[in-house]
Every structure is written in structure tokens, then in C-alpha cells.
Write a protein that binds this DNA or RNA. Sequence first.
DNA 1: TTTCCTATACGACATTTGACGTATTTGCAA
DNA 2: TTGCAAATACGTCAAATGTCGTATAGGAAA
Lengths: 218, 218
Amino acid sequence: MQKIIKTVIVDDNTFLIKAIQEKLSFFDDIQIKFTALDGSDLLTKISNNHNIDVILMDIDMPILNGIEATEIIKKKYPHIKVIMLTVFDNDENIFNAIKAGADGYLLKEVEPKTLYEGIIDTLNGGAAMNPSIALKTLKLLRNPIDLDNKKEEEIIKLSAREIDVLEQLSKGLNYINIAENLFLSPATVRKHIENIYTKLQVHNKLEAVQKAKKNNLI
Amino acid sequence: MQKIIKTVIVDDNTFLIKAIQEKLSFFDDIQIKFTALDGSDLLTKISNNHNIDVILMDIDMPILNGIEATEIIKKKYPHIKVIMLTVFDNDENIFNAIKAGADGYLLKEVEPKTLYEGIIDTLNGGAAMNPSIALKTLKLLRNPIDLDNKKEEEIIKLSAREIDVLEQLSKGLNYINIAENLFLSPATVRKHIENIYTKLQVHNKLEAVQKAKKNNLI
DNA sequence: TTTCCTATACGACATTTGACGTATTTGCAA
DNA sequence: TTGCAAATACGTCAAATGTCGTATAGGAAA
């Protein structure tokens, strides 16, 4: 018995959606649950039904593009696999898509069989990739230069003391231990952390540490 | 008319060389120019004849291993494509091979057709990669931290389900949300996390996520 | 076949965390 | 000098987390 693969297609071009649907129509175990015309449309629809295995995502879309949408989807529903399916294969898009958490990156001209195998591979814990894309990822790995630069970071200002606390927090220490290390009362540590959360607009340790790392605060 | 692909196989195990030769024997346009038993053997032979299209390179070999050999080959003969063909798929080897300039990375258990297509793709300016390898390169790209601080990672074995849960955990989701996403009871999520903690020998989310990232489990 | 592991699930309990309000001291800048 | 931000600190409460025990079903391994 084969498991049905619940699939979603996101593309602002209805002709291309049709084309993808036709490519997948050969395979009985692929079921298109729904389609969306841009990222925000996808988010709306998926909030009602996140029982989805894989999303085939275009990049260039109005309102909310595929990379932004991927970031949100992977954050909220990490179990859903996202495969970028696009005509663009420039380094920026590839790298940003990977950073956003994409599980694969294929070009739209892909053969039906290759697309299908890519979906299967991805669901089996691999990653789907065009050979040309694969080469670009190798190059990116060799030149980690481009990895850091750019990105307009919001200017988040934490006090030196708050950074101290955050640093400790990032090591997985609890309030008591942090207090001991910094010669503070646990109550103070809690207050610092409360203030940090407010400034970073997060609600728990993990998010705080992640956001801090992303903004090079620690 | 098809162009003949001049191929070299490098492996210290003659049985495996034979196996690879047999896999490629189905394809008329593949011509095995010669084989070598280790990196230095390869260098000797290739200095007499570098009219070669592609080298299938084992990693674990005496005298001069596949990664060192790749580095030298790519420096001296950049036009020759090198595809790693090995049983090892640990991060170190993958990353080092890529750094050394490998154009592809396949596992030895590869299907004949996949191997052949990998060679073709590579010669056409792409990169050959197993889906599982592809995923590892993506993870390496997302976590450029681990590129430096390798060292023999302890072998931690988590079940696929546990990795699912850990992935969700790493996004900062709470038990309830993880349960919803994975269609589980929160109690089960808690139990999974409990088991994860035991295996990773940690005692909270943050430590678990950090250790998991360090070991490229997520 | 039996055994072991995995995935699933529930309950209970103590601890930790996150959110809120409040308050005192200190040092720097307006 | 005044005022304000930062650092310090306490208390309370609800929610989330970490730890323990237990249990069942299914599948893989021995």
C-alpha cells in the first residue's frame, strides 16, 4: 500500500499551476490538496488545513514572495517539506531559499519523473536538487563570504548587561545559574530577560537566542 | 554521434573497481581509460595522460587519500571533473571533498543509471549528488558554524520521529503546537522529548537544539 | 517465536519560565 | 540640578517544562 502524498502548489501564474498539475497527474500517490496564488493566499489556506506533506513553491509572487512564505511556513509548520520550483536560479535566490529552510530547489522545466522523484526523495529525508543548483550550493559552501553580508538588520539596542544575560541564556543556563554567574539575584535576571523579550519581541529563551544570533548581538 | 566520456576510477579495493566498471558497462559512451589504487598512483598515471573527462574517486585510500588527491588534481587539471564515490557520508568528508573542489558526491550503493546520469550532469556543468548528500550540504550552508569545529562527533542515534520533534522544537514551538503539527497528543510529544533529552544527555530545549545542530541532526 | 525498539498515550508532581506590577539606587545627560 | 534610563530587586500567578512511572500496539531483529 502506498501512502498518499498531500501536495500544495503555489504560483501566481495559473497556467504554470496547471502545467505542474499535469506533470504530477501521472503519479497516483500524489494528491493536490489545493493551490495558492501567492504567499499570503497560501498562509490563509494552510491555516485551515496543515495536514500537508509538501509544498511546491514559486519564488516570484506578489504580496508575499516564495522565500518569505517559506520562512513563515517552516517556522510554523516545520514538518511540511518545501520545494522551491522556479525559473530563477541566481545565487541570491538559492541561498536565501536555503536559509529560509527550503528542502529542495528545482527548476520549472523539470521532467515529470524528476519532479516526482524529488518529492519522494525529500519526503524520505533527502533534498531535491537540480544538478545545476547542486553545483551552486557547492560553490556557496566553498565561498562562505557571501553568507554573512547584506540584510537590513533592524537596529535592536540591548544594554551591555542584557547582553551578558543573553549570552548566559544562550548556553542553556537557568535563571538561578545565571544569577550565580553574574552575582545577581534571580529576580534581577528574570527582569533582565523580561526586558530582553520585550525588546526582541519574543516570548521564550529559544526565540530570544535565535534572534540575538541572527542580529549578531551574541 | 555521441562523445565518448573518458573516465578514470580510483579505489584501493579492486573488487569495488570491478563493481563500478560493471555498473558503467551498460553505457556505450563511457570509456574507462584506466584505474588507480590510490591518490599517488592516480597522479603518476594521469601525468602521462591527462586527456580525461571525469574521475570517480574513493576517499579512504592509503598513501594519498581521495580528498588530498582531489585537491591536487583540481589545482593541476581544473578541467577534469572529480566525483567522489564512497561509502562514507559524514559531514567532514563531504565538506572537505567540496572544499577540495569535488564536482559531485555519490554513495557507492548508487544505481548504475543514477551514476551515469550523475556523470552526464557533471560534464554538462552541474553537480552530481545523492539526495541525502544534498540535504547535508543544505544543512552545512545553514549552519556555517560547524564548518570549523569538527572533531569526532559522538554517534548519537535519534529515530526519524524524534528528529521530527526536534526540528519543531528548534523553531521555538511549544508542546501543544508541536502536537498539532505532527498530529500527535501533547503527551506523546513530551515523551519523545524526554527520550531525546536522555539520548542527548541534556535537560532543556536549548541544550537539545544546540547539541542537535552541532551534530547536524537538524 | 520471543525479544527489543519505536511510536503512541495518560497521569502526577515539582520546577522553571513568562508576564505583570512595583520599588530603590546610581550615573549620565539635558 | 533635574530627570531619565539602567541596574538592581521582590512578589504573585498562570503556563510551560522536565522528570517519573506506566501501558499498549506494531515492527524489526535475534
